[in-house]
Design a protein around this nucleic acid. Sequence first.
RNA 1: GUCCCCAUCGUCUAGCCUGGUCCAGGACACCGGCCUUUCACGCCGGCGACAGGGGUUCAAAUCCCCUUGGGGACGCCA
Length: 466
Amino acid sequence: MGEIITRFPPSPTGYLHVGGARTALFNWLYARKTGGTFILRIEDTDLERSTEASVQAIFDGLEWLGIDWDQGPFYQTQRFDLYKEVIDKLLEDGHAYWCTCTPDEIDVMRETARANGAKPKYNGKCRHRNLGPGNGAVVRFKVPLSGSTAFDDMVKGRISIPNAELDDFIIQRSDGSPTYNLAVAVDDLTMKVNTILRGDDHVNNTPKQVLILQAMGETVPTYGHVPMVLGADKARLSKRHGATSVTEYRDMGILPDAMINYLARLGWSCGDQEFFTREDLIEKFDPDHIGRSPGVFDVEKLLAINHDHIQQKPTAEVTEALLPYLEKAGIVAGDRVQLEKAVKTLAPRSRTLVDMAENARFYFNGITGYDAKMAKKAFKPEAAEVLSVMKAALGETEFTQEALSATFKAVVEKLEVGFGKVAMPMRLAVSGTGASPDMYEMLEVLGQEETLKRIDDAVAHIRSLG
RNA sequence: GUCCCCAUCGUCUAGCCUGGUCCAGGACACCGGCCUUUCACGCCGGCGACAGGGGUUCAAAUCCCCUUGGGGACGCCA
């Protein structure tokens, strides 16, 4: 086939949703894997619903995911002259005709057909009337009355649809604008797109596009229809199932690499492999392994894979990604070195960057109080004594894990108590809670000065209780 | 209603094209245990599926047919 040329053609009528993101990803991956070209095309022929804000939202979504394009963005509204030319040619060659039937008349046709148990279709009334352009007239494509139109789908195999199922669909609206099927066929042809991975919901449009291309005497691209993404109830994914916009997942603290990993594995597989870096995906993506059945979007699994990425990714990169979430949470981290150390302690216990930012709060913003349940156990009067001893010992300790460990051991021996008697008050004093990172790692991140200060605060707090 | 597509654990899936190595493998979730200074991580183990029925075959999750179920499409939306 030569160079693979794929495209992603969203219509700017809303944000980038996860289903769209996945088809964009598949096309992008295939182009990147094969060293081909990936085109972005904005399908804005619906002047009523297309908005500038949506275009921007789609760019934002793609940018966040790290999906870049080689050509475009092309806007269909800027290509009306081209569509017009093709439509005129189709008219001229007898592959299309003018129609003056009103929407109301067509409604009646459809009602009638439906009542007879047939497929609701336009009945071809104007097909042989040899009408010319007139106000309110549309142009319809002349679909063969018999036979069938087939194509070999990359994921589903050969698909064949009887032409009798199709009606003479509109290719030019009464306002002169082209409709979807016409514009797509023309664009894919002129942009030399040869591989089209798109949602399942387009299967029924494919014969129409094939027919247009054939009428133009052109060859058709290779199609691959990817099954839909469903919600937990197996219905098509929609807002009522929760977040459907990719940027909502960004806001939830999902790493872009985790998002594309999850999205790729939803409907595509590579043996038993679950974890993929971006490079892995590009190297291993193969449309042959796109599944044929629809899949349910499972946030739990997304969170799990996000956790894996948080742990696998180099600390410096996770730290960089965390920055905006810290800012949003109002957390002012210390220097970068300290922050990275903190991130290292937090990674195993954070499923999202939002979690991680929240878990980092005690390191940098100080503590606002002590967990009540924990305080009842750990802050008994004698704890003040233990903490004082710890403070003295820590004042002489170098804040490295080995030295810290040795100091704790020495204090425990000197006091002749269980380790918990020392660790519990310390943990609470320093973190404010009973759940924190490993003691030595935590103290190392916190540093000597801050640790001693917090111990003082805790001692004062315990004594104030009487 | 008509047409198109799909059908392996609760979920994502491997296996299916090129039948036997599958009394079906992995992951998420769930349950139990281990580790342990907390919470986690990690590790080990458990639960759990070939929609149903017919064929073809020495042999079927794998091939064929039917049924059932699910999804999609049927717009001067894309």
